[in-house]
């Protein structure tokens, strides 16, 4: 990075900061923003951008997971079991990264952003719609009965002002989703939460807040599995990674502490639209 001037470093830190804030508020990893930033703005090869993105994902995952574990939101038992398949996927994805040409990776990344954007838009729209419902109707879908399963637990939800007990079911589809999410992490530098959170919530019956926290917990391991391979391959640029990570971490701290209670649904929908535009730009670069 010695040839870069201070303005580039400042731009990276400031961008990282906003990515960190957005990641915390929107409940996504920074990968969807970091990879396009490094590829489209800094003209970095996509393999290196993915490797740097994973380091930033580890940083945010670790920082946010520490808070979520303290709050009792993370289901660590579910997390460690799903990490078995997510780690396998992440190793496979990282090994595949070197086998694919850059324009394929850019195309895959752009194509993946489509469903990510649709899911994010839907999530925001659904939450907004639920907020308009009477409280009892809105809560009915998330509050379960505490059955004596080994994964079943409860957490305190300050928004409801009560403990939310839940039972975990259908572990097999969740393990499959974790495998795919891990592969996405290694191959495209994305956290994979966009797959894991809906599966845990809709298929396994984990309330959305606990699903988001548990997914964040898992993401650290999948990103680390891929990053360990990329570190040995020399794909991670430490000075660039450090600059992005400092910005992203500062943004995450602000996002967690200050913006924890803001309503992010409209922001989610707006960024879903932005993501489609980024996907189009990545796609056009892939075919240049």
């Amino acid at each position: 990075m010695s040839e870069w001037h201070g303005l580039t470093i400042l731009m990276l830190m400031v961008s990282g900061f906003f990515i960190g804030v957005l990641g915390s508020v929107l409940g996504i990893g920074g990968g969807v923003f970091i990879v396009p930033l490094l590829v489209l703005v800094l003209k970095l090869p996509i393999q290196q951008a993915i490797a740097v993105s994973l380091v930033a994902i580890i940083a945010t995952s670790s920082a946010v997971a520490a808070v979520n574990v303290e709050r009792g939101l993370t289901n660590m038992r579910l997390g460690i079991v799903l990490e078995m398949t997510t780690a396998v996927g992440a190793i496979g994805g990282a090994l595949l990264l070197n086998a694919l040409p850059a324009h394929w990776l850019q195309t895959l990344f752009a194509v993946m952003l489509g469903p990510v954007a649709v899911l994010m838009f839907w999530k925001g729209w659904r939450t907004l719609r639920r907020a308009a419902l009477p409280a009892a109707a809105a809560d009915r879908t998330t509050i379960g009965h505490l059955a004596p399963g080994r994964f079943d637990t409860e957490f305190h939800d300050p928004a409801v002002g009560a403990k939310i007990p839940y039972a975990v079911r259908n572990l097999v589809p969740a393990a499959g989703a974790s495998l795919v999410a891990g592969a996405m992490s290694g191959l495209l530098g994305l956290g994979g939460g966009i797959i894991q959170v809906p599966v845990m919530n809709l298929v396994c019956g984990v309330p959305i807040k606990a699903a988001t926290a548990t997914s964040n917990f898992l993401i650290g391991v999948s990103a680390a599995a891929s990053a360990l391979i990329f570190l040995r391959q020399g794909l991670i640029l430490p000075d660039l990674a450090a600059t992005v990570v400092v910005g992203v971490l500062l943004g995450s701290f602000v996002g967690i502490r200050v913006l924890y209670k803001i309503r992010a649904e409209k922001l989610q929908m707006a960024f879903a639209v932005l993501m489609v535009l980024v996907a189009a730009k990545m796609l056009s670069k892939a075919f240049q």
Partner: peptide, 20 residues
Amino acid sequence: AGNWFLAGVVALILTPVARV
């Protein structure tokens, strides 16, 4: 400086490993 940046990256990558 490069060595310290690398040390930081390694520490970060090993954090989830230590957590497991």
